[in-house]
Design a protein around this nucleic acid. Structure first.
Length: 128
RNA sequence: AAAGCAGGGCGCCUUAUCGUUUCAUUUUAUGAAAAGGAAAGUCCGGACACCAAAGAGUAGCAUAGCGGAUAACAUCCGUCCAGCGUAAGUUGAGGACAAGUGCAACAGAAAGCAAGUACAGUUAGGCUGUAGUGAAACCAGGUAAACUCUAUGCGGUGCAAUGUCAAGUAUAUUGAAAUUUUAGAGUUACUCGCUCUAUUUCAAAGGGUAGGCAGAUAGAACUAUAGAGUAAUUUAUAGUCUAGAUAAAUGAUAAGGAUUUCAAUUUUUUGAAAUACAGAAUCCGGCUUAUAGCCUUGCUUUUAUU
RNA sequence: CGGGGUGUAGCGUAGCCCGGUUAUCGCGCCACGUUUGGGACGUGGAGGCCGCAGGUUCGAAUCCUGCCACCCCGA
């Protein structure tokens, strides 16, 4: 049953990174992978959850001033992750926490963001 | 028809697939609901909560024709006056300088303790009028978005308030000195009062979370009809349930349509581009600011026609 | 969510409380002098919508109101 849930492209509440403490730890100790326009911060840690990865998304206020633009970008990032998360899940065995940080200065389209995430995914696999 | 003035409304739509949050049923699927006119700025006014360290006075702040509406307001409505406009309209912190104090560049004899130019009228003294400078000139001068005075209102802090559950641990301990009934500390911008302690002062050492739930979504609510009132608004009846997230929920893809602009074609097609401002965070009433495009009501002026 | 502060020449500042002729000072810039040439020094000069828009006033950088940008503080 669990594998069935894992295979579906969902992104529920349990899969999101919510704990303030975990997030603080992530920013302090986490390792970083850069691609031009996006950064992935990740940390191997045992969190009490059913899913292998807890994930969060962030768009700094310095890049996008309006809340509408920030929300839109976060939604696009979440959507691309949702569709491609099986690529991560298929290749790891331990628990991780992720944070995707938006770094590009302009507003990217859905396809551009997807490209960036795929790039980061391949880099991530090489490192681990 | 053109130009203009004032007001109201809408804020791209439909379908399919994959997803997000809440609620309900039942059980892991199905159904229902899911951002705005400004959700924004946080500029006012409330609701609500806590604080006797919350009381009283002063200070401070705000408002300012008159009357009304309202839970309340700096909001709204009516009306008077003044400015602007041919007009429809629009703008106005619009009380008091006959309580006191201050200020007034340049120009001017003189800007407030006073002093006094030229000309004209009349018999002299004197009085009256005019001229010139300036924003303002013997007149109870001007100026209060100058101090101030008058009237009215305002206790403070804010949902990160507050309550509760779980975990953890402190209302303490040690040493030294001083005083016996007035002494110290704390509190608000200040004063009085108030609170704490029989002990007070000094020194040493030691301790901490920010998780869950409630608050938190049915309300000064919305819609319709009728009545009262010039109007803001209000009364009655009937109906409706209309976001509740917390690193923070509404998205992605595809197809079709709608509107506008531009180009081509020449009279209805084709192609391209655009569809604004912008995202709820305790909740309401306003104000201010941003806003593609469209719809609509009333009125004014000018010209033409009947 | 709440509170506070600052915007003046390319840069850093004074003036704002208490309104008044052409807005202050330093560094930098330009020209001339000095020097064989440069630096330093001396003399002269340019450069400002006083963050933006309204209002009060005869007159506003200054007073009042509304916006904009930046910075800081509080659980």
């Amino acid at each position: 049953m669990l594998t069935f849930v894992l295979m579906r492209s969902t992104l529920g509440k349990e899969e999101k990174l919510k704990h303030r403490k975990l997030i603080e730890q992530l920013f302090k100790k986490g390792l970083r992978i850069n691609s031009n326009g996006m950064q992935l911060i990740y940390l191997k840690i045992e969190h009490e959850g059913d899913f292998p990865i807890k994930v969060g998304f962030s768009v700094p206020k310095r890049i996008m001033k309006l809340a509408v633009d920030r929300n839109r970008l976060k939604r696009r990032m979440r959507e691309t992750y949702r569709k491609n998360k099986h690529l991560f899940y298929d290749n790891i065995s331990e628990q991780y926490i992720f944070m995707f940080v938006y770094k590009a200065k302009d507003e990217l389209t859905y396809l551009e963001i997807e490209e960036l995430i795929l790039k980061i995914q391949s880099k991530f696999l090489k490192k681990t």
